[in-house]
Design a binder for these strands. Structure first.
Lengths: 120, 120
DNA sequence: CATGATACATACTTTGGGGTAAGTACTTGT
DNA sequence: ACAAGTACTTACCCCAAAGTATGTATCATG
């Protein structure tokens, strides 16, 4: 069959989408199953790691930290660790993170309307 | 420790997220790399299949139809096929589909601000 | 001295979304 | 007769995201 692939189209597409589409830009940051949920829980104020775990029982610890780290490097949350004996770490939204809440609200509003059949 | 797994956590999580989180509900419909882009192109009016293909050169035909079909079954677009000799098929947004445009706008607005460093 | 709590880390496996490549049906143009 | 255009369909493959399971450091408490 002799492969003809020149370069990775996947990466090309990613670049294309990122450059051309702000929606993709947002998706890259809050896409995935857990990020919006985490953001939602942080919207009410700062939370400890263990509080988040209890608030979102279905998430695994690996996913929780992984996403928290990504949100941190994306400048959407701030991690604050106090150097105490049993670790005490809190997470809270940055201004950019808070700026996403209207987006989430808009989505929630549409979802409610749609689920109620407002459009059908 | 003797495993404790009861049933497929993946499906449970999906159910949990869908029930508890309207954002996930939205993501299920407009998530993925291409759906928002397709929606964007349809926001300006109805488009033929081949017009969409030309407007989004990076997408493959398989992805384009696959997503169009999904959008159709999700009641976000309407497919109209005229029974003519060279096929003539147009797609356009439903009211629910149009209802998503504010969401996309909110995302775009945030993305612009964030990319310009308005939050840093 | 071993258990529990806290906040992680990490090796391994699975799954499904997305990509590649090729084929179909029907008709017009040359 | 055969290529070209339209709107798909299908078989196959790959990789990254998500999940499973287990380990780590520190100290308090029974």
């Amino acid at each position: 069959m002799t492969a003809i692939k020149k370069t990775s189209t996947i990466q090309e597409n990613k670049q294309y989408a990122l450059a051309a589409c702000p929606v993709t830009y947002v998706m890259e940051r809050i896409g995935g199953y857990w990020k919006p949920i985490i953001l939602y829980h942080l919207s009410h104020g700062d939370r400890r790691y263990s509080e988040l775990r209890k608030a979102i029982p279905a998430i695994t610890e690996k996913m929780l930290i992984q996403h928290l780290k990504q949100l941190e490097t994306d400048q959407l949350v701030i991690r604050e660790a106090r150097p105490v004996v049993p670790p005490f770490v809190t997470y809270r939204l940055t201004d950019a993170g808070k700026g996403l809440l209207p987006v989430i609200d808009a989505m929630a509003t549409w979802a409610m309307k749609n689920m109620e059949g407002a459009f059908s």
